[in-house]
């Protein structure tokens, strides 16, 4: 066959998982299909990654079987979730059976205070300089308005502590050195074999022809400081995570 994974590249966060309940034939079939089409974003064990954790038993686009069917077939507008209109009803049914079997229905333990976390996010952390929540905040980093729906707890924790662990597409770091020796570092706005487009930390947009600069490179690292595990105490980190997990979209 030609291409199997065309949806998105991903990093697997293979966290230890409890085995799912006794699998039915449908859920086992679903697991196979899930591994092929869904695991790249939702994780090999449905535990989430770049896509939401599906083991929580509660889903952004609705919790009924009909909601899950619709989400799989049509995707979710405005998110990275594509639709799979070519899937037969049987395949979708198998996927839903698998997702149900994988759902542990135990929400992750959230220890911190989301109120304190909100204050830390905007003040001490200065996170809003680059991240937007609703209409507030900067645009250099990913929009976190729906972070609590879109990402798993483990993924968000890793992203705060180790920002380089997995870079969302479109947030790579681009470094250009111009012919007059100036070094410009910023976030990806376009990078191909001939061009480098970026926005620097002041928000200024640059468009370079790679043939007209001394060097241009794209790196799969984040411009976000890797110092938050030091800046925040463990208790503060719990608070910030508690806040991020409450972010489920503008009401």
């Amino acid at each position: 066959m030609r291409f199997l994974i065309s949806l998105c590249a991903s990093a697997f966060l293979c966290a230890a998982q409890t085995p799912p309940p006794a699998a039915t034939q449908a859920s086992e079939n679903g697991r196979v299909v899930f591994r092929i089409y869904c695991a790249p974003c939702h994780g090999i064990h449905a535990q989430g990654g770049r896509g939401p954790d599906l083991t929580r038993g509660t889903y952004a686009a609705g919790d009924t079987d009909a909601d899950l069917h619709r989400t799989i077939v049509s995707g979710v507008t405005g998110t990275e979730m594509p639709g799979f209109p070519d899937f037969s009803q049987n395949i979708v049914g198998d996927l839903v059976a698998y997702i149900r079997s994988a759902a542990q229905r135990e929400p992750p333990q959230i220890k911190g205070s989301f109120k304190d976390g909100e204050a830390l996010f905007w003040a001490k952390g200065g996170c809003g300089a680059c991240h937007k929540i609703g209409s507030k905040g900067g645009t250099l980093g990913p929009d976190l308005t729906r972070a609590g729906r879109q990402r798993s707890y483990a993924y968000l924790l890793e992203s705060v502590v180790h920002p380089d662990a997995d870079i969302s597409p479109g947030f790579e770091t681009i470094t250009v050195v111009t012919r007059d020796g100036k070094k410009i570092v910023g976030v990806h706005r376009g990078y191909d074999n001939f061009n480098a487009l970026l926005v620097d930390q002041a928000g200024k947009f640059y468009s370079f022809d790679k043939n007209e600069v001394t060097s241009a490179k794209q790196e799969y690292r984040s411009l976000m400081p890797g110092t938050y595990a030091k800046l925040f105490s463990p208790a503060e980190l719990d608070d910030v995570l508690a806040y991020l997990m409450t972010l489920k979209g503008v009401q």
């Binding site: 199997l4 994974i5 991903s10 697991r31 196979v32 090999i44």
Partner: peptide
């Protein structure tokens, strides 16, 4: 790529791969 093996019974005309792949490198 990461190559995964899974179990799958053959059903007439259905996807029959018993395996999948994952990417974690660019």
């Amino acid at each position: 790529m990461l190559f995964y093996k899974t179990k799958q019974d053959y059903l007439d005309g259905q996807w029959y791969q018993a395996s999948t792949v994952g990417e974690n490198e660019h």
